[in-house]
Simulated assay, not measured.
Amino acid sequence: MSPPTKLEFAVQMTCQGCVEVVHKSLKDVQGITSIEVILDAEKVIVETTLPSETIKSLLEKTGKRAVLQGMGSSKVPSHLGAAVSILDTGSEMIKGVIRFVQSDEKSCVIEGTVDGLPSGNHTLCIHELGDISQGCKSCGDIFGEGLTEKVKGILRELKVGTDGRAIFRFEENQLKVSDMIGRSTVIHCGTVNPSKSAGTDQDKRLVCGIIARSAGLFENPKKICACDGVTIWEERDKPLAGGNRSNLS
């Protein structure tokens, strides 16, 4: 099991009754080790081994909107780095978000939710370049390909059912967040053969996105989205092209 991380959610709350409802929605859930609800700041801090999408779904079953604002380590007090990759290039049907947080000096927790994938087994990879100017074809080769027998950039095989959704969370010990920022995340159709994939796999790249630095715990106090001036709650409900932000935030 991957180590726990702390997740910081903005949750709409107006009274002590809201606090009690939110706390009850998370209490006694296996995989959650601590819950802190801060009414004045409209924040909920959860220490958990569950994916952030699972926690957000539990919070929103209360009828309140929730937005993930930061991730951090449960092991060390200082922030060691976090990143996010929005998968929205390469397919109008496939959308997703992958998050990375450095849990200690040696380990990185990677978690994500991707919708619209074809059923079957696919492979999550890190590619060398953060270039999507030509779609997923310009992301370069898989990171670390040809350097060692175990290719660092081949992360995990995803098993996708008929609903087209992949939810995952795992620990990675070969890469750090700092290694991945500025590169790209690509999901390949089928299983990747590291000895044959260099430069020959472009037609099998289903969806991709650049990996960018994201906020750690308490590093994102915004209530207004700088890109278009709307509140985080309005931004939370705006649809992505071909998808729904409410499934991907």
Rank of each mutant, 00 (worst) to 15 (best):
R213A: 07
R213W: 03
R213G: 04
R213I: 02
S214N: 11
S214I: 00
S214Q: 10
S214H: 11
A215S: 15
A215C: 13
A215V: 07
A215F: 15
G216H: 13
G216L: 12
G216P: 05
G216K: 10
G216V: 10
G216N: 11
G216M: 14
L217R: 13
L217K: 13
L217A: 13
L217E: 10
F218H: 10
E219G: 12
E219D: 15
E219N: 14
E219K: 14
E219R: 14
N220G: 11
N220F: 15
N220H: 15
P221A: 07
P221S: 08
P221E: 01
K222P: 00
K222V: 12
K222D: 05
K222W: 02
K223G: 03
K223E: 03
K223H: 03
K223R: 07
I224M: 09
I224K: 06
I224T: 14
I224N: 04
I224C: 05
C225T: 03
C225R: 03
C225Q: 00
C225N: 07
C225D: 03
C225G: 00
A226L: 11
A226M: 06
A226N: 10
A226P: 15
A226F: 08
C227K: 13
C227S: 12
C227V: 10
D228V: 04
D228A: 05
D228E: 12
D228L: 03
G229V: 11
G229P: 02
G229C: 07
G229W: 12
G229T: 10
V230Q: 06
V230E: 07
V230L: 05
V230R: 09
V230I: 11
V230D: 01
V230P: 00
T231L: 01
T231C: 02
T231G: 00
T231Y: 02
T231M: 01
I232C: 02
I232R: 01
I232D: 01
I232P: 01
W233R: 02
W233H: 01
W233Q: 00
W233D: 02
E234T: 07
E234F: 04
E234D: 12
E234K: 15
E234H: 09
E235M: 08
E235W: 13
E235I: 03
E235L: 06
R236K: 13
R236Y: 08
R236A: 02
R236N: 08
R236F: 05
R236I: 00
R236D: 06
D237R: 06
D237P: 00
D237W: 00
K238E: 10
K238W: 06
K238Y: 06
K238M: 14
P239Y: 06
P239S: 09
P239W: 03
L240N: 08
L240Y: 15
A241Q: 12
A241T: 09
A241G: 07
A241C: 09
A241F: 15
A241K: 13
A241I: 12
G242I: 01
G242M: 04
G242V: 01
G242A: 04
G242T: 02
G242C: 04
G242Q: 04
G243Y: 08
G243F: 09
G243K: 13
G243D: 07
N244V: 09
N244P: 01
N244Y: 10
N244E: 13
N244I: 09
N244K: 14
N244R: 13
R245I: 03
R245W: 12
R245M: 11
S246D: 12
S246A: 13
S246K: 15
N247T: 10
N247D: 14
N247Q: 14
N247A: 12
